[in-house]
Nucleic acid binder design. Structure first.
Ligand code: MN
Ligand code: MN
Ligand code: ZN
Ligand code: ZN
Lengths: 143, 143
DNA sequence: ACACAGTTGCAATAGATTTGCGGATGCAAT
DNA sequence: ATTGCATCCGCAAATCTATTGCAACTGTGT
């Protein structure tokens, strides 16, 4: 019924509560979420962790979800709705994350270099900035 | 006696075989290595995994080693020797990694935007490209 | 309602990283 | 070279994140 069910059906996959919720929750979140974060935001009854992982894997393979690799222990996930390409900033002290849409993100020159030098066809990229957020900086750069 | 011992001593940390070897191995590797990779390249007797992790943590905190977050299960590490800023390309099918020095990597405009919008002081960034390597592309894009 | 494929919870398992602890080692001061 | 203290190391146990096997359950088309 929602856009999500549509997408799943179109891709020939059964629509289940877990999948719809994952897509809804990720879409509402301004930040990429870990599997645990995600599960916590489920309305009760919460699905098993294994189910969350399996669904994240499925949705990723269908291109509806993207994984985000920050320098953390666990992976994060975000909705891959169309053209919401983002870059991120992470605070090295407290882990605070900000994300911002990357308009006119032009790395086509670099991608062309890559094609020539390595023969790789680039389909995607991720760009993260690391530094110190204002709060941590004020507190003496060692949160 | 090597440059490595110097760096450690200067930072007031005991010089041990494990630390020197880690720095040497990482410096000789064209690719960032996982903790396991690293340990395998140690001459015998190989240190305990815990020791490798502890030393990587220490060397990171001293700024001599950087962690690299690709979309893998484990973290990778690279030598942070001065001006060897690199970008990377990863094959989504087979995991092959290429790294290349990023000359004239000018993201200062973006970093300035970040300072204005979020107040973050950016000290570093990481940029990775994902796609398909020539071999995997030839084999039908599904390694 | 029926049949089948695909999904889920649960428990077991794997793999990466961290931690406690007692015995070794690095290093600076005798 | 010896001593003393801080730090490090190996080893085993503990944590965490993520994956897998299996039997019961659900989604979807007929
Ligand atoms: Mn971009
Ligand atoms: Mn760069
Ligand atoms: Zn912060
Ligand atoms: Zn490949």
């Amino acid at each position: 019924m929602g856009r999500h069910s549509e997408a799943l059906r179109r891709l020939g996959r059964p629509v289940t509560r877990g999948r719809e919720e994952i897509l809804r929750i990720l879409e509402e979140s301004p930040l990429p979420l870990s599997s645990r974060d995600l599960r916590e935001r489920f309305p009760d009854p919460k699905p098993d962790a294994a189910t969350v992982y399996r669904n994240l894997a499925l949705l990723s393979s269908l291109g509806l979800v993207r994984t985000v690799a920050l320098h953390e222990r666990s992976r994060r996930y975000e909705a891959a709705e169309g053209e919401n390409h983002r870059h991120r900033v992470v605070c090295r002290s407290c882990g605070r994350i900000e994300a911002f849409p990357a308009r006119k993100c032009d790395l086509s020159r670099v991608e062309e270099d890559i094609r020539r030098r390595f023969g790789f066809t680039v389909t995607d990229h991720s760009l993260e900035f690391f530094g110190d957020c204002p709060e941590c900086r004020r507190k003496g750069n060692k949160g």
